[in-house]
Amino acid sequence: MKTGFVHEVHVVIYCDRCGDIYSENGTEGICFTSVHQAVNYLNARSAGVGWLYDGDKVICDGCLAAARCEEHGHSYPDTWQTVTRLLGISTRSRTCTVCGIPEIEALP
């Protein structure tokens, strides 16, 4: 039986490109008992969360989306959202549906 403070070793998944931690609740990484367990878990879940393990590198969903947009260009919707800010300055914007990067233009 373990009690008190016990030092244990575990495996956490990080993106090899950006260093983002694999998390399902948005704040804390999941602890695995081995690399094998982490790989199996990620491969079983990757279709739903978008992370990819190719046998060598782990790539997060954000990096995969950014790579897709770098290769094929952004996918912006046809419609823009217009915002009038303080002092009468107006902008219009739209967001890429793949990677989430916004395109913003100042209006005259």
Rank of each mutant, 00 (worst) to 15 (best):
residue 79 T to S: 13
residue 25 N to Y: 04
residue 59 I to P: 01
residue 80 W to Q: 04
residue 94 R to L: 14
residue 86 L to A: 14
residue 65 A to I: 03
residue 55 G to R: 06
residue 93 S to H: 13
residue 44 A to S: 13
residue 11 V to T: 11
residue 21 I to R: 00
residue 56 D to W: 10
residue 58 V to P: 00
residue 48 G to W: 15
residue 101 I to M: 04
residue 60 C to M: 08
residue 32 F to M: 01
residue 104 I to T: 13
residue 54 D to N: 14
residue 53 Y to F: 15
residue 100 G to D: 08
residue 71 E to R: 09
residue 92 R to S: 11
residue 27 T to R: 03
residue 85 R to H: 13
residue 74 H to Y: 04
residue 65 A to S: 12
residue 14 Y to F: 06
residue 13 I to C: 04
residue 10 H to P: 00
residue 73 G to S: 04
residue 72 H to A: 05
residue 54 D to G: 10
residue 82 T to N: 02
residue 95 T to W: 03
residue 80 W to K: 07
residue 92 R to A: 11
residue 82 T to F: 03
residue 70 E to S: 03
residue 101 I to P: 00
residue 63 C to V: 03
residue 14 Y to E: 04
residue 23 S to T: 15
residue 78 D to R: 10
residue 65 A to R: 12
residue 58 V to N: 02
residue 74 H to A: 01
residue 26 G to E: 04
residue 18 C to G: 00
residue 74 H to Q: 02
residue 58 V to M: 04
residue 40 N to H: 14
residue 75 S to V: 07
residue 13 I to H: 04
residue 23 S to C: 09
residue 43 N to I: 05
residue 24 E to L: 03
residue 51 W to Y: 11
residue 34 S to F: 02
residue 25 N to M: 01
residue 60 C to Y: 10
residue 85 R to E: 11
residue 46 S to I: 11
residue 60 C to A: 08
residue 79 T to L: 11
residue 98 V to N: 06
residue 88 G to T: 08
residue 45 R to Q: 15
residue 73 G to F: 05
residue 102 P to W: 09
residue 29 G to C: 09
residue 16 D to F: 00
residue 80 W to L: 05
residue 98 V to T: 13
residue 62 G to C: 10
residue 88 G to D: 05
residue 67 A to D: 08
residue 15 C to F: 00
residue 17 R to D: 10
residue 55 G to Q: 12
residue 9 V to Q: 05
residue 80 W to I: 06
residue 50 G to Q: 05
residue 29 G to E: 14
residue 27 T to A: 03
residue 98 V to R: 09
residue 8 E to Y: 02
residue 92 R to T: 07
residue 95 T to N: 14
residue 28 E to P: 00
residue 63 C to Q: 04
residue 34 S to R: 11
residue 101 I to A: 07
residue 84 T to N: 05
residue 37 Q to F: 01
residue 46 S to H: 14
residue 21 I to S: 02
residue 77 P to E: 03
residue 27 T to S: 06
residue 74 H to I: 02
residue 46 S to C: 15
residue 103 E to Q: 13
residue 97 T to Q: 13
residue 11 V to P: 01
residue 96 C to I: 06
residue 43 N to V: 07
residue 76 Y to C: 01
residue 41 Y to C: 15
residue 10 H to Q: 04
residue 24 E to T: 11
residue 18 C to Q: 00
residue 43 N to F: 00
residue 65 A to W: 02
residue 14 Y to Q: 04
residue 83 V to T: 08
residue 90 S to C: 08
residue 101 I to Q: 09
residue 44 A to C: 08
residue 36 H to W: 09
residue 71 E to K: 09
residue 85 R to W: 13
residue 43 N to M: 14
residue 59 I to L: 06
residue 29 G to P: 12
residue 99 C to S: 11
residue 20 D to F: 00
residue 82 T to I: 14
residue 48 G to Y: 15
residue 53 Y to P: 02
residue 100 G to W: 01
residue 12 V to L: 03
residue 33 T to H: 12
residue 48 G to D: 15
residue 67 A to W: 02
residue 12 V to R: 06
residue 34 S to N: 11
residue 66 A to C: 12
residue 38 A to C: 02
